[in-house]
Amino acid sequence: MIATVTLNSAVDKIFILPTRILEKLNRVERGISIPGGGGINSAYAIQFLGTEAIVMGFVGGMAGRFIEDEIRKTQISTNFTYIKEQNRTDHIILNKRGKVLAQINEKGPWVSSKEIDSFIESFKRILPRCEMILLSGSLPQGVSPDIYADLITLAQERDVRVVLKTSKEVLQSGIKAKPYMVLPDIRGTDVLMGIKINGVKRRVELAKKILEQGVRIVVQNVGNYQLFVTAEKAWEIKLPEVDIINSIGIGDALIAGVMNILKDREDFLEAMRYGAAASVASVLHVEAKVNSREQVEGFLDRIEIKELDLS
């Protein structure tokens, strides 16, 4: 079983506009509302790839009910902590070719210390059942940036490996607790850990800096290619070209595909292949979620992996 933690889960409202004129009245061609947040997106992929997934985090208000009810329609297990304030709603505006024209994310609810304690108790109870844990996304208000580091430490006490996907100071705090794998979320930032992020060389340099702190694997998603870096080796993974409908969940699918293999065995090449194939499958749907194992496996032979020369 893999538990995914999404502390700042959201209702994602996705609109597809026929034009890109945002200053005027726009008639939405198609609009949907779905549960969102990194860990929830990953949980869908994990479950469809054949591993039991359980989602954790905070839910409150009508938005929280929507998130919980929608997930309950799947085979994914839920173990949410109920809070007084309402979950956030994120607005994602796409054009017909899947390009994100605008993304407006709310901050998220205020979570009290009592609600945080209640979540941590649930987290401790789920650990003995899990092979791996994913901590993903931003934090709601009232939650310390050090919470991921605390959760990683709790998991390590139970010998449960943790994957961390988040950004900025929360990422840097979490890395210090030495998670097993990290996917740095670099949306909206050019510089991370003192490194200007552009091109493969700089990205590998960033990965190496993260690995130096005791992390085993760093993965990065960069549009049409991905990087998989360990202390010993690095690989570039090229994705096949497809017609993109919505690419906002590509990193979440990557993580899910990789975890689905690594939970059983440290077969890095197979993990990269599954991660990349899940990424491609996720962009084919407006919901940006993997919804078929067969579709993922259909892309496995089209993934190109090249080992990078680190000398």
Binding site: R72, N79, F80, S118, R125
Partner: peptide, 24 residues
Amino acid sequence: MIRDLTSVTDMATLKEVADMLSYS
């Protein structure tokens, strides 16, 4: 079944349970 693990420990208070039941 509903695959939901909402639960409490035996050291939770009745008020905490009442709040949980009300929302869930």
